[in-house]
Every structure is written in structure tokens, then in C-alpha cells.
Computed example of a mutant assay.
Amino acid sequence: MRIIAIIAAALAVAAGPAFAQSVPDAARQNHLDLAERYLVLTQGGDLVKQMRGQLEESYNASGMPAEQRAWLIETVSETLAEVMDATVQEFRDDVADSFTVPELESAIAFYESPVGRSIVRKQVDMSMEMQETMSALLMPRLEGLTEKFCIRFDCSALGGAAQKEAR
């Protein structure tokens, strides 16, 4: 019984600093709130709606049956929204540590303006287009890189090792 009491006391002493650190003071909480608002404006919120529109456009052009399209659009949109919310929460501390309060306040004021919202929408579209362009440019180069690798090294040995690992 004495051991249990000692363990409980040790845990309470060890956990005390952790609990004390987990509750930010008012200034830090304000900084975290600003970081979250910045992330929502630049990475979340309306962007999920915009990405849903892009999904609808893409899936509607796929020739997929309507029921499948609707399910995919809804499910992928919900998943994107969940991931964006989780990303904002995960990244909030990093943003607060990277930007000062005045920087976040200025950025938020800008991104809440009509020009700022327009820029965010355009950045999303351009990012999607850039990813498509990069993929198209990257694939032939990766194939060429694989060929160069196989000229330099024995790829047949790698294939055998990969088959052994798959077993």
C-alpha cells in the first residue's frame, strides 16, 4: 500500500509542471487565437468550399455515375474539412512562434479585406494548377532518373530484394 502512495505522490509531483504548462497565459492565448485566425483565413474556411467546387467540377467531368460522384464529393469534402481543422490546430503553435502579434494582426486585417480574400482564392487555384504542371514535368524526369540509376547500379538485384521484402 505504501508503494502505491509513493507512486501516486511521484506522479502528482511530475504531472504538476506539465499541467501548469498546458494552460497558456492571457497574452499567449491571444497570440494563439490570432495564429488560428490567420490559418483559417489563409488555409481553411472558404478554401474548403472552393476545393469542394473543384472536386465537383473534376468528378462531374469524370463520367462517373451520379450516385458515386455525389458520395465522393461529400465524403472527400468532409475529409478535407476535418483535415484542415486538425491542421490548423496542429500548426497554430508554430505560426504563433513564427509571427509576432503585430504581424498576425496586420496579416489578418489584410486577409479579411476583399483584396485579401481574392488573393487567397487565386492562390488556391494557382496552387492546384502548379501541382498539375509540376506533376507533368516531374514524371518524365523521374523516369529518366530511374533509367540513369539502373545504368549506374544493377536494378535486377534491387528487384529481387524488393520481391524478397514483399514476401
Rank of each mutant, 00 (worst) to 15 (best):
A8N: 07
E143N: 06
V76C: 02
A8E: 11
E143P: 00
A9Q: 05
L55C: 04
D46T: 13
L41F: 02
M130E: 08
S156T: 13
I6P: 02
D46I: 04
R167P: 04
R69N: 00
A14C: 06
S58R: 13
S58D: 09
M84V: 15
G160F: 10
A26Y: 00
S106E: 14
V101M: 07
A166D: 14
M130F: 12
V83D: 10
D125Y: 08
S106G: 14
R167E: 15
A9C: 12
F91C: 00
T87P: 00
L11H: 04
A61F: 05
A162Y: 06
T100Q: 04
E56Y: 02
Q89W: 01
V13I: 15
D33L: 01
V23A: 10
K164S: 15
L55V: 01
L11T: 05
D94L: 09
K49D: 15
L158W: 10
I108W: 03
Q131Y: 04
A14Q: 12
E143W: 00
A35F: 01
K148Y: 00
L39N: 02
E165H: 14
K148D: 11
R92P: 01
F99A: 01
Q29R: 10
Q43C: 01
A61P: 08
M64C: 05
P140L: 06
G16Q: 08
S106R: 12
A70T: 06
P114G: 12
H31P: 07
K122W: 06
L137N: 14
V23S: 03
V115P: 06
A14S: 11
E165Q: 14
A15K: 03
T87M: 10
A136H: 09
A61T: 05
L32P: 02
A8S: 14
L32D: 04
E74Q: 14
R92V: 08
E132F: 05
